[in-house]
Write a protein that binds this DNA or RNA. Structure first.
Length: 583
DNA sequence: GCCGTTTTCGGCCCGACTGTTTTCAGTCG
C-alpha cells in the first residue's frame, strides 16, 4: 500500500473512533475529509520532502493533520491514532458498516450491553437481552439482525457493470408506469464509480402512488427498508439496496443533482449557495430571505433554478459539471469544464482476443463487430505462450496467426486489422516473445498476468522495463487488479507515467468493469505527467465491446480529454504513431 | 479539526424516514 493509502486508512480509522467515542461531528468530519483527500491525491505525499506549509496548502488539511502526516512519514506511525485505538474494542469499527447502526447506537450497545464486535452483537440479539436497552425495541433489533445477514450475503459493494445492469432492468420496469414523466439513475452509478454501494433512482411524476406500488412489487424485492411518500428504500435479491426518490417535475434538476452527489460535492455546492445569499436543496435553488424556520419550498418561495442541473450550476456561476467529476476534488474551481472524452470519440479497439487464444470470435467476426461499432481499426492481440491457461500462442502459432490476420485485413474492406499480441510481462520485466518476433507485429500490448503479489519496488522495476522496451506500444492493465477479487500490483505510478511519456508508450485503461485498470486517480496522474492513454475493452466476445462505456466513465472520472487518448485518433494519426514506434 | 470579500472565534448542508417516541434522536444519503 502506498503512503497515501496507508495515511488515508489511518485518518479514516481515527474518524471512526472519534465518532464512536462521541466527539464533535465536525472533528469527525475533518478527519474523514483528510482521509478522502489523501486517498485521492495524484502524487505521492512522501515526495518532494513535504513541509507543514506545503501540506496545509491543500484545502482541508490544517496544522494538526499536517503534523500527523509528517509524523507518519518520519516514524511510520501516528501516536494519536494508536492512542485512539486503545479507547475502544477494535471489533466495534466493523459495526459501522452495518446498515442502520450508527455511532450512537454502537456506543450504547458497547457501554450498556458489553457488545464488542459482530459476534457479541449477534449473541446479544439471539439472547434477546438487547431489547431492554433504551431506544431499542423489537423492530429495531430485527432490522439490525437482517442488516447483518444482508451484509454477510451481499459481501460488499457491487461492481459498476453489475449495478448498471440491475439499474437498467429497474428503469425498464418502472418506465411503463403511467404518469411518470422522468426516470433516471443517479448516485455513484451515474458518477461512474468503480463499485456501487446502492442504486439511486429518481423519478418525476404528478401521481406518485402507482410508481410507489410498482417499485415495491417489482421482482427481486427482499425487504422494504423505508416507504415514505417521496422516498422508498428496499433490499434487492441481487445483494444491493435500491432507493427511489420521487419529486415534482419542476424540481427534477435540483433533485437529480442532489441525488447524484457526491455528498461532499453537494456540501460544497450548498455552501457556495449560502455565500451567494441563496439556499440549495433537492427542491431547487432559492433566494435566502433570512427566514429559516421553514424550508423555502414549503413557504411558496419561487426558486431561482431547479428544472435542470445546468440552470442550477449557471445560477451559482458555474459551468455544467459532468457527474463523473463531482467529487469535491477541485471541480468547483473550474471556470470552464474541460471537454471530457465521450464514447463517440472512440474510433479503434486496440486490445482484443480471438479463438486463437481464449476469445470466442474468429478474426473475421472480431473485425466485423469492431466495424459495426464504427471503428476504423481493430488490433488482434491474442495471448503469448506464458499465458498457458489462456491458450497463449507459441512463436510458431503466432507466425501463422499473423499470416491469417494479414489475409483477413486484405479481404475485409472498411476497417484495418492490425496483427498484434498481448505479450506477457514476465516477473522480471522481460517480454514473453523474442524481439525478432515482436518486430513482425503492428502493435504490441504488454501486460502483467502472473506474479501479481510483487512488492511495489519490484513491480515498478518490472513494469518500467516493459515500458522501456522499444517495441512496446501499450502497457495493458498495468496493475492487474481485479475488483473485489485481488489487489494486484502497486507500482509507483508517477515513475511509470514519466517513463511512458519518454518512451511514447500509452497506458491502458482496461474497460472491463472487473478491471478498470488504470483507475481514476492513476489517469489523473498520467495526464499531469504528460503520458498518453488507451481505452480498450480487452474483448473476448462480441458483447464485451459494450464494456467501453465503463472505460469511458472511468476515463472521465480521471478528467481525460479526447486528444490524450490514442483510440480517438484518426486512422492516419494512429498508424503513423505505431510506425514511428517501430522504426 | 478547519476555515475566513462580514469572522482568528464561531461557525460548520439539508431533508426524509423510522422507531420508540408524546416531541424527537438517530441514521442515511
Amino acid at each position: 500500500m502506498s503512503a497515501n493509502a496507508e495515511l488515508a486508512a489511518i485518518f479514516a480509522e481515527m474518524a471512526s473512533v472519534l465518532q464512536i467515542t462521541g466527539q464533535s461531528p465536525f472533528r469527525v468530519n475533518a478527519h474523514a475529509r483528510v482521509a478522502r483527500i489523501l486517498g485521492a491525491l495524484t502524487s505521492d505525499v512522501a515526495e518532494h520532502a513535504p513541509t507543514p506549509e506545503s501540506l496545509t496548502a491543500i484545502a482541508g488539511i490544517g496544522k494538526g493533520s499536517a503534523a500527523k502526516i509528517l509524523e507518519y512519514l518520519e516514524t511510520g506511525r501516528v501516536a494519536e491514532h494508536q492512542e485512539l485505538l486503545k479507547k475502544i474494542p477494535g471489533g466495534l469499527l466493523d459495526l459501522l458498516g452495518i446498515q442502520g447502526l450508527g455511532p450512537k447506537t454502537i456506543r450504547l450497545l458497547w457501554q450498556q450491553a458489553g457488545v464488542t464486535d459482530l459476534a457479541t452483537l449477534q449473541a446479544g440479539i439471539d439472547s434477546g437481552e438487547l431489547e431492554h436497552l433504551p431506544r431499542l425495541g423489537p423492530k429495531a433489533i430485527a432490522n439490525i439482525s437482517r442488516a447483518i445477514e444482508f451484509a454477510r450475503k451481499a459481501g460488499g459493494r457491487t461492481r459498476l457493470g453489475a449495478a448498471m445492469t440491475i439499474a437498467q432492468g429497474i428503469l425498464a420496469h418502472l418506465r411503463g408506469v403511467k404518469g411518470t414523466s422522468r426516470l433516471e439513475y443517479a448516485g455513484s452509478l451515474r458518477r461512474g464509480a468503480e463499485t456501487i454501494g446502492d442504486i439511486d433512482i429518481l423519478a418525476a411524476t404528478a401521481d406518485p402512488d402507482p410508481l410507489r406500488h410498482a417499485f415495491e412489487r417489482m421482482p427481486g424485492v427482499q425487504q422494504i427498508l423505508a416507504a415514505g411518500p417521496t422516498r422508498l428504500s428496499l433490499r434487492h435479491a441481487a445483494g444491493i439496496q435500491i432507493d427511489l426518490r420521487i419529486v415534482a417535475e419542476r424540481s427534477f434538476g435540483a433533485a437529480w443533482m442532489y441525488f447524484t452527489g457526491s455528498k461532499q460535492h453537494n456540501v460544497q455546492m450548498r455552501e457556495r449557495a449560502i455565500k451567494r445569499k441563496m439556499r440549495l436543496n433537492e427542491y431547487g435553488l432559492f433566494p435566502d430571505d433570512g427566514r429559516c424556520e421553514e424550508p423555502p419550498q414549503e413557504r411558496g418561495v419561487e426558486p431561482v433554478a431547479g428544472d435542470t442541473e445546468a440552470e442550477v450550476f449557471a445560477a451559482l456561476g458555474l459551468p455544467m459539471i459532468p457527474p463523473e467529476i463531482r467529487e469535491d476534488l477541485g471541480e468547483l474551481e473550474l471556470a470552464k469544464t474541460p471537454r471530457l472524452i465521450e464514447q463517440r470519440d472512440i474510433k479503434s479497439e486496440l486490445h482484443a482476443h480471438t479463438v486463437a487464444s481464449d476469445g470466442r470470435l474468429s478474426i473475421d467476426q472480431l473485425a466485423r463487430e469492431a466495424m459495426s461499432r464504427g471503428f476504423h481499426t481493430v488490433a488482434v492481440t491474442d495471448h503469448s505462450a506464458a499465458s498457458a491457461q489462456a491458450n497463449g500462442l507459441s512463436a510458431d502459432r503466432l507466425r501463422r496467426h499473423i499470416a491469417e490476420v494479414r489475409r483477413a485485413d486484405r479481404l475485409i474492406d472498411g476497417i484495418s486489422i492490425l496483427a498484434g499480441a498481448e505479450v506477457d510481462i514476465l516477473a522480471d520485466g522481460r517480454l514473453d516473445y523474442t524481439d525478432d518476433l515482436l518486430r513482425e507485429l503492428d502493435i504490441v500490448v504488454a501486460s502483467p498476468h502472473i506474479a501479481l503479489r510483487q512488492e511495489p519496488a519490484v513491480a515498478t522495476k518490472r513494469l518500467l522495463r516493459a515500458i522501456r522496451h522499444p517495441l512496446v506500444n501499450i502497457l495493458g492493465h498495468p496493475t492487474g487488479r481485479m475488483i473485489n477479487r485481488r489487489e494486484g500490483l502497486s507500482p509507483d505510478i508517477a515513475a511509470l507515467v514519466q517513463a511512458a511519456r519518454e518512451c511514447d508508450v500509452a497506458l491502458e485503461i482496461n474497460a472491463n468493469d472487473i478491471r478498470l485498470d488504470l483507475r481514476d486517480i492513476h489517469i489523473k496522474s498520467a495526464l499531469a505527467g504528460g503520458a498518453l492513454l488507451a481505452i480498450n475493452t480487452d474483448a473476448h466476445a462480441a458483447e464485451h465491446f459494450d464494456y467501453l462505456r465503463y472505460g469511458i466513465l472511468t476515463a472521465r472520472r480521471g478528467w481525460l480529454t479526447p486528444d490524450r487518448c490514442i483510440n480517438t485518433w484518426s486512422s492516419e494519426k494512429l498508424h503513423r504513431w505505431l510506425r514511428k514506434a517501430a522504426s
